[in-house]
Computed example of a mutant assay.
Amino acid sequence: MTAQILLNGITIEQLAEALKPLLQKPLAEPQHVTNELIGRKEACALLHCNLSTLHKHTKSGRLKSYGIGNRVLYKKSEVLESVTPINH
């Protein structure tokens, strides 16, 4: 079922005038992935893998990890960029 908007008692000019402020606003900028740091579990959730697979990719150099104290962190943008398309 399609949605319909019915306007009664308003002219096209009045509608255009009412919509003018909305049309002059800049569109929302697309959400960019920031350099947000995520933990190992979050990285595994993004990649749909387990901790041992994440460790393997980190040791092989496919993923770059960062650390502070005893925590291992990943940049979310780098984790997402590490995924490459497979051509079939």
Rank of each mutant, 00 (worst) to 15 (best):
Q24P: 02
L19E: 12
Q4A: 12
N70L: 15
L27V: 14
H32S: 10
Y74I: 00
V33Q: 07
L6T: 08
P21C: 04
R40T: 08
T2D: 15
S82M: 10
I12V: 06
N35T: 05
R62F: 06
K41R: 10
C44L: 03
A43P: 01
L37S: 05
H32R: 11
E29W: 03
A45R: 12
G69F: 09
I38E: 01
G39P: 01
S77I: 15
C49S: 02
L22M: 10
V72W: 06
P85R: 08
K64D: 10
Y66F: 10
V79K: 02
L73F: 06
L63M: 01
L46S: 00
A28K: 11
S77C: 14
P85N: 07
L23R: 11
Y74V: 00
G9W: 04
C49A: 05
R71Q: 10
N70G: 11
Q4E: 15
E36K: 07
L63Y: 03
S82Y: 06
V72Q: 11
L63C: 03
K41S: 11
K59R: 11
A3M: 15
P26I: 05
L19W: 14
M1S: 15
V79R: 03
A18L: 12
L27H: 09
V33T: 12
K76E: 11
L23M: 14
E42T: 05
E29L: 13
P85Y: 06
S52D: 13
T53A: 14
K20E: 15
L22Y: 15
I68T: 10
N50V: 08
K64V: 11
S77W: 02
L23K: 07
S65Q: 06
H55M: 13
E78M: 06
C44S: 03
S65V: 01
C49G: 01
I68K: 10
K59I: 07
T58Q: 04
L23N: 09
T53K: 13
E42W: 00
S52Y: 14
L22H: 14
N50S: 09
H32K: 11
Q14P: 00
H88S: 09
V72G: 00
L27S: 11
N70P: 08
V83K: 09
